Computed example of a mutant assay.
Amino acid sequence: MAALRPTGGMPPAGRRAFLADLSPAYFGLVMATGIVSLGAGMMGLPWVARLLFLLNVAQYGVLCVLYVLRACRHPRRFFGDMVDHLKGPGYFTTVAGTGILASQFIVQTDSVRVGFVLWAVAAALWFALTYTIFTAFTVKRDKPTLDQGISGAWLLAVVATQSLAVSSALLAARIGQPFRLELNLMALSMWLWGGMLYIWMMSLIFYRYVFFRFSPGDLAPPYWINMGAMAISTLAGSLLILNAPQAPYLVSLLPFLKGFTVFYWATGTWWIPMLLLLGIWRYVFQRFPFQYDPLYWGAVFPLGMYAACTWQMDHAMGFGFLAALPQGFLYVALLAWGLTFAGMARRIVRILRTPARA
């Protein structure tokens, strides 16, 4: 599980080493910033939402450049990580990050054309990565054992799938025919497939939890995706419920949509106390060092997504009594985002200063 453990202090290496070692999961930064921005916009903090949106556009552009440079200068590392059981699923953050940025353009700027282009890029990345990674995992000769090969990062495949469901539903709500019905069908299909994928993967992850030795280093931040995958599934289901008047086949499925949306939300809610207890065990009782790692964005994202999905579900289901819950989680997500961003900034400064010290 070493690939998912925090790296600790920055070794005496320069910018070239940073590029070679760039985490495949670094687009989690875009995922986390994007959903916190969307949540802030939902809950009456427009200036926070706007600031984070502009920052996210810049972050997305920088990461695209870095990933392309890594693929060109370090192709063995770049593509080798893609077929590694622990690192490979991290590439699904590129899909989820692109899909969430598409949702930001659609919701926060009404730029349907830009949103559509990003949605198309996310769909192409989803198709390429899904069938590349899982085919490679299936046919490769040397495979790790279950306890050494699976982690919560695998659920990034679910998040990527549901991000397409969310962006498809948002596009469908803002365009006319001939594509409205087709986009709603794609959103529905991705929502259903993401749920099935979660059941498959979560069964293996939970089995690994309770039947194999579990050390503090194994509890990497992506385990928060256990909750985040259900949260984004809830958000997608809520949007499908709101889109039902636009598509007759969604109207006929409304009881199913509402039931499974609440089911996803309840499952995600169950995970929160469990993950908090495991975090206390890791950092308090086992005294595991708390230092910045890119994987911590995989813990910030679920907090923001839970706030956003709870707000949207409360609206779609007409509950009216859950308003305080998403507000509280939004502020927790903003705090977690700020602390993680400060850690990232400090790490970048150290990297930039390394050649001078050498």
Score class of each variant (00 low, 15 high):
147 D>L: 03
238 S>P: 01
332 V>R: 00
162 Q>K: 01
208 R>I: 09
16 R>E: 14
162 Q>L: 11
108 Q>F: 05
112 V>H: 07
292 Y>A: 08
209 Y>N: 09
258 K>W: 02
15 R>K: 11
222 P>R: 03
338 G>T: 14
337 W>I: 07
161 T>A: 05
91 Y>H: 14
50 R>L: 12
101 L>R: 06
305 M>Q: 11
35 I>E: 01
37 S>F: 06
202 M>N: 12
326 P>G: 04
135 T>D: 11
144 P>D: 05
338 G>P: 00
45 L>C: 03
31 M>D: 07
358 A>L: 15
340 T>R: 02
325 L>Y: 13
283 Y>V: 05
355 P>C: 05
110 D>I: 03
235 L>V: 08
6 P>C: 02
59 Q>Y: 11
240 L>D: 08
151 S>W: 04
168 S>M: 04
142 D>H: 12
257 L>G: 02
218 D>E: 12
333 A>F: 06
203 S>W: 10
158 V>P: 01
256 F>W: 13
52 L>S: 07
355 P>E: 08
243 N>H: 01
47 W>F: 09
180 R>A: 10
305 M>E: 13
236 A>V: 03
119 W>A: 08
354 T>Q: 15
193 W>F: 15
237 G>K: 01
325 L>D: 01
101 L>P: 10
242 L>Q: 15
83 V>E: 10
45 L>Q: 13
191 W>F: 14
202 M>W: 01
353 R>A: 11
160 A>V: 02
48 V>K: 03
227 M>A: 13
84 D>V: 02
125 L>D: 07
34 G>C: 04
276 L>H: 09
322 L>T: 05
35 I>S: 08
67 Y>L: 10
129 L>H: 11
301 F>A: 09
356 A>S: 12
68 V>C: 09
97 G>N: 11
99 G>Y: 08
43 M>K: 06
325 L>C: 04
179 F>E: 14
347 R>P: 07
6 P>Y: 05
311 W>H: 14
320 G>H: 06
